[in-house]
Amino acid sequence: MRPTVLLWDIDGTLLSTGGAGRRAMERAFARYADRRDACEAFSFAGMTDRAIIRTGLETVGREATEDAIDALLAIYVEILAQEMSLAGDTRVHAGVIEALDAAARRAKCAIGLGTGNVRAGAQAKLTRVGIYERFAFGGFGCDHERRDELLRIGAARGAAMLEAPLEACRVVVIGDTPKDIAAARAIGAESLAVATGTYALAELAACAPTHSFTDLRARGALEALLG
């Protein structure tokens, strides 16, 4: 059986935080730059945390230096922990638990994250719904600002866990945005797109993912995930 590395996106794919991430980012900008409206004009879907902050800083006319991004990220992570502790409408998407259970039973399968969230942000979100410990590794927004590069890092970590060469592994990126699909293609991975976020199934299918489903309960989704 071919070794398999699964890289899961978080927001819109694994769960919905009910807007906690955006609220935390808005509050962080309000504290740092006195501008809560810095991110009003663009969607966060598929963006890494560092890219969101860089875009927000440029929107309000502030220099997006690495030090400024790091400072704002630290504020964001602090506030996100508060927001997640209060969030009452956070939920895991349909079929996710069953898919994680099935993957855990599969031989030679490494279950990790491929997310634009920084590691601390990912932990805050997934701990809130009790699934953080299911992911042994990942590629995170603190590893790289570009989604394809953080996925490449995550894939390498998964292959190392399986004690297999990366080129011998089947890598599957599970996501809910066109950016997930494009990044998977850029690293030569399969993509499994789910319409559980802000994009409809037809919009995702138009981006030519390897597989696309309404959610992970759909017929054939588990088979596509596990190969």
Rank of each mutant, 00 (worst) to 15 (best):
E66L: 11
M47C: 09
E63C: 01
I153L: 13
G95P: 03
G227C: 03
L86R: 14
A38N: 04
D70Q: 13
K125Q: 03
R119K: 14
A205Y: 00
S16D: 15
R106H: 09
D180L: 04
G138H: 04
E145R: 11
G121I: 03
R2Q: 14
R219F: 02
A38I: 04
A103C: 11
A103R: 06
V173P: 13
I174L: 15
R105K: 14
R152S: 15
M161K: 11
A205P: 00
G138A: 07
L226S: 11
I187R: 12
A122S: 12
A208R: 13
S43K: 13
E190C: 09
G114S: 10
A107T: 13
T90Q: 11
A186H: 02
A206M: 10
T177F: 04
G130C: 10
G141W: 01
I79R: 10
E133A: 15
E26P: 01
A189R: 05
A20K: 04
L72K: 05
C207T: 07
L150I: 09
R62C: 05
H93R: 13
A160F: 09
A189E: 04
G12S: 03
A41T: 15
A33R: 13
L226F: 10
G220K: 05
T115L: 05
C39A: 12
A186M: 02
I181P: 10
V171A: 01
G197I: 09
S191H: 08
S16R: 14
G12C: 03
Y32G: 02
R36D: 12
L100D: 01
E190P: 12
T59Q: 09
A28M: 05
R50P: 12
C109I: 07
A45M: 06
R146W: 02
A20N: 06
